[in-house]
């Protein structure tokens, strides 16, 4: 009896409380920036694509839904010739973002990916790449890589020089 009354009281108290149900999709939720949903490819501060096609995201992906094909510019910069994610398979675990050495691949709070056809859930490089730097502003992988020459590096040594 007491149990029933206390339950009724609790329900009665909630009658005046603020509702938790959201009128989605009319009302959009505000998600934290670290929320893991739609995957993007970002650009470095110079506007160059950050991805170097190292394939670490593809390797770490537990559902194997990423496929990257490497290409190389004349000056030795690697870039993805194709970059494909199958969102029909993606489980948004965020491992790819953790594995990425260049901060290129990032997960965003945009979760509205549903579609009627599986084929529309295959995102290629042009669908994934955004114009900005995303969560890691100012980071430029090629400055620290030590492969393609940048101003951040020491000049090449002169092997004919015998001075210490």
């Amino acid at each position: 009896m007491i149990g029933i009354l206390s339950s009724l009281m609790r329900i009665g108290r909630m009658l005046g409380a603020k509702t938790q149900t959201r009128a989605y999709p009319e009302e959009k939720p505000v998600l934290p920036p670290r929320y893991r949903a739609r995957i993007i490819l970002t650009r470095d501060p110079d506007g160059q694509e950050r991805c170097v096609a190292c394939n670490l995201c593809a390797a770490v992906c537990p559902v194997d839904c990423i496929d990257v094909v490497k290409a190389e510019t004349e000056d030795g910069h690697w870039y993805p010739e194709t970059f494909r994610i199958n969102f029909a398979r993606c489980i948004f675990c965020g491992f790819c973002e953790e594995a990425c050495p260049t901060s290129a691949i990032q997960l965003t709070p945009d979760f509205e990916l549903a579609d009627y056809a599986r084929s529309s859930l295959i995102y290629d490089k042009e669908h994934l790449t955004i114009a900005g730097e995303g969560k890691h502003p100012g980071y430029r992988y090629w400055d620290i890589a030590g492969k393609a020459k940048t101003e951040a590096e020491a000049p090449p040594v002169d092997v004919r020089d015998l001075l210490p």
Binding site: C65, A88, R118
Partner: peptide, 16 residues
């Protein structure tokens, strides 16, 4: 064993 990218293409629900 760590061969990647098998499900990146549209397989319409088939196993790779």
């Amino acid at each position: 064993e760590s061969y990647s990218g098998r499900t990146a293409h549209d397989l319409a629900g088939r196993v790779p």
